[in-house]
Amino acid sequence: MAVNRVDVTADAAVLLRRLAGTHGPLMFHQSGGCCDGSSPMCYPAGEFRTGNADVRLGDLRVDGVGEPIPVWMSASQFEYWKHTHLTIDVVPGRGSGFSLEAPEGVRFLIRSRLLTDQELAELDGREQQPVPAEER
């Protein structure tokens, strides 16, 4: 399987299927800062306007969800995160922000691990410019 930067747990995939059924195509933007920051925010696709200040980390392909779910992060934040692999998980909680899952009594959560040297080499080769904003 190809190396990727972002993945999703089985539990989070179940939730994404439900949310996509209700809200249609989805997107994530990883937040920073206080309160509910440092958490992934899930929106209807296009709700959050990404731009040159953002990086698309990858697309989540979830069985039963038609459209791939792009995962975005601000480019400045990516500079500090790019050596880590992210997995979107879900936990019981009372999330805030305008993320879609909060009313369900659950919250998306990022779990992280270090990318291996081999993974980094492969990603570096693929992402000559790791800012594919034009592909939006």
């Binding site: 933007h29 990883q30 937040s31 920073g32 800062g33 206080c34 309160c35 509910d36 920051g37 440092s38 958490s39 925010m41 929106y43 709700e47 959050f48 306007r49 601000s74 805030s96 922000g97 305008f98």
Partner: peptide
């Protein structure tokens, strides 16, 4: 608004 950056940007939008 007081909170985090992504929601802050969305509120600006």
């Amino acid at each position: 608004f007081t909170g985090e950056t992504t929601t802050g940007r969305l509120i600006m939008q």
